[in-house]
């Protein structure tokens, strides 16, 4: 299943990634300041993303919230969604808030984001990051995402960055444990979450589904489920400057609908964690 597998296990991890917080500082000004202290590379696919070598959590700029430490792959789902100033967005599994604060930044602190997470311990980190980034358009909720639709909120766009086995993080955690039973449990949970997400979405609204897992059961299978059961269709994703590969169409005896329009980001291709992203529209 893994293309160029040997490259995956030797991929470099010495570069860390950060995102400029344009709610507090201009991109060029931060680049100039950081270049005096660190070795900095611009991210080819996102103007507000940089790769940096060094201890990025011990700088004046970090203290001031001028940038947010965020995995490079995790910057992609908001870029696929393209949040707008007038949107009402629901981020169903928001903690610790990297994508939430990125969306708030892209919306220039206007519109509304409902940032939800079931885990009350993780909400603390979410609230901390929202405050530190100077975000004013977020409402932090503590509901089980599977039942969020019962609360009567509707979004123009929804981000479902679903809980997953996180096998795409293997580049940074080569000692991670894996079990097929966990994959299956996650897949069931992800289907419940996408069902709830579809009910929270207005007709014609956009849902971006993502995981940092490599398993088809957690990705293409969930999309296949949404297409067949939830009045959703898959839309093509356009990203420039990053190597992406198509979703997996066949896995064992299963064949998945919509996989050809979903994208996979493999760790060995771009110095990121592995990611799966799919954009769906409700009809």
């Amino acid at each position: 299943m893994i293309p160029d597998a040997e490259k995956l296990f030797s991929a470099s991890t010495e570069w860390k990634s950060i995102r400029v917080n344009t709610l507090k500082i201009g991109r060029d000004e931060l680049l100039e300041r950081l270049s005096e202290k660190f070795e900095v590379r611009e991210m080819p696919w996102y103007e507000n993303g940089f790769f940096i070598k060094g201890d990025i959590t011990k700088s004046l700029e970090y203290y001031l919230g001028y940038y947010h430490v965020q995995e490079a792959g995790s910057m992609l789902p908001p870029l696929v969604m393209l949040p707008d100033k007038n949107d009402c967005i629901i981020d169903i599994c928001a903690a610790p808030g990297s994508k939430t604060t990125q969306m708030a930044m892209m919306m220039e602190n206007e519109g509304i984001i409902f940032a939800n997470d079931v885990n009350s311990k993780r909400l603390r980190a979410l609230a901390h990051n929202i405050q530190k980034c100077g975000v004013v358009n977020c409402i932090i909720l503590n509901h089980d995402g599977r039942f969020l639709w019962k609360k009567g909120i509707k979004g123009d766009k929804i981000l479902l960055d679903a809980p997953c086995t996180a096998s795409g993080k293997i580049i940074k955690n080569k000692n991670m444990t894996w079990s097929y039973g966990r994959v299956i449990r996650m897949s069931k949970l992800q289907k419940r979450l996408i069902e709830s997400a579809s009910k929270c979405l207005i007709d014609g609204g956009t849902l971006v589904y993502s995981t940092c897992s490599l398993e088809p059961e957690e990705n293409e299978e969930v999309i296949d489920y949404a297409i067949k059961n939830l009045n959703m269709e898959v839309e093509k994703i356009e990203l420039v400057g990053i190597k992406t590969r198509r979703g997996i169409k066949r896995w064992g005896d299963k064949e998945y609908e919509g996989a050809e329009k979903a994208i996979r980001i493999w760790p060995q291709d771009n110095l990121t964690e592995g990611f799966f992203i799919c954009k769906l529209r409700k009809y």
Partner: peptide, 18 residues
């Protein structure tokens, strides 16, 4: 943000706002 519906928020389990 000014557009936030405070009445709706009162019905939700809201951890923090703004």
């Amino acid at each position: 943000e000014k557009g936030v519906d405070m009445e709706l928020c009162k019905k939700l389990r809201c951890y923090a706002m703004g």
